[in-house]
Design a protein around this nucleic acid. Structure first.
Lengths: 216, 216
DNA sequence: AATTAGGAGGTGGTCAGACCACTAATATTG
DNA sequence: CAATATTAGTGGTCTGACCACCTCCTAATT
């Protein structure tokens, strides 16, 4: 239990901020105390408070609006993806790992979703499929993305969903766009979800995964 | 109706820092220019430079050593999951998500490992099993943890491995300790790895997972 | 009285300068 | 030559000062 020479102040502040969030029961959208108030309450310089807040902002956990204040964000990637991607993914190995991990996480989400998806979700997916009956490519594409997202969310595990978001975000800032699901693929997925056929769903996903790997 | 023109300085600095890394061809382990030099070169205040650096540090992209300087880190997620999780995991639902995600990631790693593990790795695992032939509980426990880690790493996907580390690391800071593999479990896993029996391995893991879920 | 223009105060954004603690390279000393 | 003291450089932190922007309240205008 080494007491490592006092943690950096801004790390300590991160913990304190979290404590404040918990104590005051703050939710997404709520306002955090102002930088000056935090500086006061925590007995630290405002610059240290700012270092902590800026970190959280880059992680996408908070949002700051000049003249208004600092607010807790709905959990989304924000810049995290951009930054990490541009700094990390320099070698091909890392990129491959990223793609592979993304596919694996998607597979996991779908496998959970097939067990947990409620009928309301299923019918919502059905509606999306119907919306694809159009010639406007743009709209079809949008519906497919939406479809994919809803399926992933249906896994009922928020952390896993977040991982998907992050992993997808990275990819989008790379040269090669992430592969989204096609209309035909969405339809297959919906059918299998309705039938709660986990086995076929798994093989469907790994087939797609293998196909993508083959390209490289 | 503001035009949202000038990007925040510290965001701009992030880009500049990246440019410097690329220009100077800096690698992991190399030293970045000092805060004061960056402040000078980029014509911005040192505090702004620090806000940018602190963000990168929390993301695990750089490492700062007082009295020495700022260094580029090996590319890893580092605190990513930890911080995300600690700010998101306020309720029991989130904790359950964490445990579930951890088990899923482990399962994924093992499923990859069964296809990719090299014979050298397998024999190393065999040695660990032999080391467990002792009465010292402490040593057995240590060997089991080591066994688990090696198996996970054998997945050959560094990102996935990092996720495991972080999910496990964070969990250990919660009240309930993470469940590690027992000696018997390790032996079963080794046998199936040797036989490359992916199917049985999968069912073995989900069985354990279900058992843990039942406890709650 | 209702509307509008203006101001006051709060908030984040940024900067400059000042210390401190620590490290490593240098100079000094024995 | 080796051990030690000095010094320059670095990150860590705080303070105080502006600026730009937003919100809300007040007071003047209509």
């Amino acid at each position: 239990m080494s007491v490592q020479p006092t943690e950096k102040v801004y790390i300590e502040i991160l913990k304190q901020i979290k404590a404040i969030i918990v104590e005051d029961g703050l939710q997404a959208g709520d306002k955090l105390p102002s930088e000056r108030e935090l500086s006061d309450r925590l007995k630290v310089g405002r610059s240290s408070v700012r270092e902590a807040l800026r970190s959280l902002e880059l992680l996408g956990l908070i949002e700051t609006r000049r003249g208004e204040g600092t607010f807790i964000r709905e959990a989304t990637g924000h810049r995290l993806v951009e930054v990490l991607a541009s700094f990390i993914l320099n070698d091909n190995k890392a990129r491959h790992d990223l793609q592979e991990t993304r596919h694996i996480v998607i597979k996991d989400c779908v496998e959970l979703a097939v067990r947990r998806a409620e009928s309301a979700t299923i019918s919502k997916l059905g509606n999306l499929i119907e919306q694809m009956d159009t010639n406007e490519q743009e709209q079809v594409h949008k519906a497919c993305k939406q479809f994919e997202k809803i399926v992933i969310q249906a896994c009922g595990n928020h952390l896993l969903y977040r991982l998907y978001v992050e992993l997808t975000g990275y990819g989008s800032s790379l040269q090669r766009a992430n592969s989204y699901w096609s209309q035909a693929f969405c339809e297959e997925v919906l059918t299998l979800l309705q039938q709660k056929d986990a086995v076929k769903l798994t093989s469907l996903l790994s087939k797609q995964n293998d196909a993508l790997n083959a390209i490289e």
